[in-house]
């Protein structure tokens, strides 16, 4: 914890775990999709499902998926803003299994593409993104994060790394579909990954999808 974490952050209340953390998970989803989705379903689990309105978790999630910052006082009016901007939203409740009590699953759609992102708010506003499009992961969003879906063939990873000009902080590779020979690579970096690197990586024939979420 740095001095700035002690005397901050600036945020909209009431709770760092149920408001700030929830907003950050949805904001990650917003950044991942690249823009506000057309429709979204928030599946609330555990403590999120129990105390959602009293903590403003619902408003925080809506605000986050619309790309608002944690300190934006319009979060209070998130329902009205969502309606005015044409966002279709829904809240449902489900037991999502052996996950942290403050967990939400976000099902969103944009341009006939669907996105499925699950995240947990683990305290003090910190989050873990634990699943993206059915691939389990563990992203803290304390770094710039690049997620690529690749064909699981020899040398594929090497071809991605070859195009990276910045230092890597963390790297995960997971085979996600053995039959379809698909794997997911998550790369976390301290420095910004230059657009040129990203362009080269996504043009690579073994790369099927490439997403980049800048650290907030």
């Amino acid at each position: 914890m740095s001095l700035l974490d002690v005397v901050g952050p600036v945020m909209v209340g009431p709770s760092s775990s149920h408001t700030l953390g929830a907003l950050r998970i949805a904001r990650f989803a917003y950044k991942f999709i690249g823009e506000m989705p057309e429709s979204v379903n928030f599946v609330l689990h555990g403590s999120f499902a129990e105390t959602w309105k009293g903590h403003g978790t619902d408003k925080a999630l809506l605000a986050g998926i619309m790309g608002m910052h944690p300190w934006d006082e319009r979060i209070r009016e998130a329902y009205i803003i969502a309606k005015n901007s044409g966002l279709k939203y829904k809240f449902t409740f489900e037991d999502l299994g052996e996950v942290h009590p403050n967990t939400v699953l976000i099902d969103a759609a944009k341009n006939s593409k669907t996105y499925r992102i699950m995240g947990s708010s683990i305290g003090g506003g910190e989050i873990r993104i634990i699943m993206i499009n059915n691939v389990s992961c563990e992203i803290s969003w304390e770094y710039n994060t690049m997620l690529t879906v690749i064909r699981d063939v020899p040398g594929a990873l090497e071809r991605i790394l070859r195009n990276l000009t910045v230092n890597i902080s963390n790297l995960y590779l997971r085979r996600t579909n053995a039959l379809g020979k698909i794997a997911t690579v998550i790369i976390e970096t301290d420095e910004e990954i230059p657009p040129d690197d990203r362009k080269k990586i996504s043009e690579n024939p073994c790369v099927m999808d490439c997403y980049y979420v800048r650290r907030d």
């Binding site: 005397v7 945020m11 209340g13 760092s16």
Partner: peptide, 18 residues
């Protein structure tokens, strides 16, 4: 009370104790 009303606060050191 501003915190409980979703007002902007500084979580110094936490939201509950702001």
């Amino acid at each position: 009370e501003s915190n409980a009303a979703m007002g902007r606060i500084v979580a110094c050191p936490t939201a509950g104790a702001c």
